[in-house]
Design a protein around this nucleic acid. Structure first.
Lengths: 288, 288
DNA sequence: GATCTCCATCAGATTTGGTGATATATCACC
DNA sequence: GGTGATATATCACCAAATCTGATGGAGATC
């Protein structure tokens, strides 16, 4: 008494019912008619009951055959799926994802981990840069999928979420009370001009506490409570916090997180990555 | 390049990961260690990539192995399930279902059809009788599952639905205007005393148009617009209709449809049948 | 460093499962 | 009711796959 079905025979069985004949099925499967016939016989013997009703024209499944057909289809679907995932060209290669460095945390690391589980044969290259640079790279074919932080959503993009820009500083810090307000921004940070403009409009004096291109420097300055910074509300790292300034600092504009996909970027892995990003930031997956 | 996975090898693969060793897996599977080892090798060859990481203590799946593990488990689950359905003793035998004949339509035929599809090796014996007789049969072990129409729900029963009892007659019929009201009921019909009592209380004179134990006779009498009858609102057959009497006939009490299960009736098929009945009458399936 | 455990690999035995040929059955048409 | 066409079952044979039991080697354990 065997315990495991033979997927080859099962495929023959399903094909016989789908093509309506042993001979046709055999052709489609590139086997001889007798081989398929014997597979059917083996199946029936193994399960100890008739599966096909050969009465007259064509073949019809018996009641038990119906059962096996349903299960068989599901099993073959799984088989084909895993087979595709493990060997299909479409599931290997590289996918280049660009993310502004200020929104890498907290979602991206987890997404990369999960993606690698799902598509182990796809190498993910994470590009961390500025929104403008990322858009250039997408144009230049150097990235397949990018996230951006912008104040609107162009037609070729999709908005994942709109988030408030907030003032942040060290946990429990007081740097935000100082005047002129001491700021820490990277030179190319997209939010820097937004913050400055908001302060100017509110008539609050300010000065740059650091002049750097390093995120680390900014972080260190903020952690030491020497300056304040602006970032999206949902991505404030643990050692910092949104400043509860009670109106002493101006409200900052909101920003959108958009996703762009290169025209050339097609295939299930890219779809899946896009969906994971959507799901993380928007909380909603989009059907493929 | 094979196209179908070998479920035997797949089971070995899964077992190796579950037992943490080729040798242990082989014992559990009643195979030699070398056989299992070769199966693993064949799997890796077929899929063209390493599935196991034999580094040091124990075995760990590679990233691709994780994939295969997940799919493999699902496929084996399906395999074992269909195998059980097709060969397990628990999925063959007889199940005796008792249903009062006035609620057989419209649901029961469809349920029986669907049940037979799901459990082709289980013979269903449909017992059509009166509620009291059915309860006797259940007590006497002559039925596994019965539906009843009663005006309450005893502790050992489960109420599926509460339905209004309504007056019915021929489509477009006028028999309900006659006085004395002419009635057609089988002798043992449970609803007969309910109807008579309601008429008496309303001071409406009545007489029995037929004296029979045959449903057919009652139906024929009703179809000919010679008498009226009372039945549950949801089970009125097509050739009859609920009478729109506008208060000229008394309101009838409501009735419950209950389900009872014999203590000895256990197993998945009985559960499934009970669930199908619940679903049909109550519109809700109950988790197994 | 000896021992133990576990796994990969090999040669040979066995079984499985496929091909091609043949027998049987069913249908369409006369 | 017979005939040809088409479809399926079965058989003998053969090739390939797969199991067993033996062997050797890599780590872990003492």
């Amino acid at each position: 008494m065997p315990r495991n079905l033979d997927l080859t025979a099962l495929r023959s069985f399903v094909t016989v019912l789908e093509t309506g004949g042993v001979t046709r099925a055999a052709q489609q499967l590139h086997l001889t008619q007798s081989a398929v016939s014997m597979q059917l016989k083996r199946l029936e013997e193994a399960l100890g009951q008739p599966l096909l009703d050969r009465a007259g024209r064509g073949v019809a499944p018996t009641a038990q055959g119906e059962q096996l057909l349903a299960y068989g289809r599901r099993m073959l679907t799984l088989n084909d799926e895993v087979w595709a995932r493990m060997t299909d060209k479409a599931f290997e290669g590289e996918i280049r994802v660009g993310v502004p460095h200020d929104i890498i945390y907290p979602y991206i690391p987890d997404i990369l981990r999960r993606f690698d589980r799902e598509y182990p044969r796809v190498r993910v290259q994470l590009i961390s840069s500025y929104t403008l640079k990322l858009k250039d790279m997408l144009q230049g074919g150097e990235a397949d999928l990018i996230l951006t932080t912008e104040n609107d959503t162009p037609a070729d993009a999709e908005c994942l979420t709109t988030q408030e820009l907030v003032w942040v500083g060290a946990r429990g810090g007081t740097a935000w009370r100082n005047r002129p307000l001491r700021l820490a921004f990277e030179r190319n940070c997209l939010f820097r001009p937004w913050a400055l403009e908001a302060l100017d409009r509110a008539g609050i004096g300010w000065e740059m506490a650091v002049d750097t291109n390093s995120v680390r420097t900014v972080e260190a300055t903020l952690s030491a409570d020497l300056a304040v910074h602006a970032m999206l509300e949902k991505v404030v790292p643990g050692q910092l916090e949104a400043i509860n300034h009670g109106g002493n600092l101006p409200t900052l504009p909101s920003s959108r997180i958009n996703i762009y996909r290169a025209h050339a970027a097609v295939g299930e892995p890219v779809d899946a990555m896009a969906n994971m990003l959507r799901h993380a930031y928007r909380g909603v997956a989009v059907a493929a």
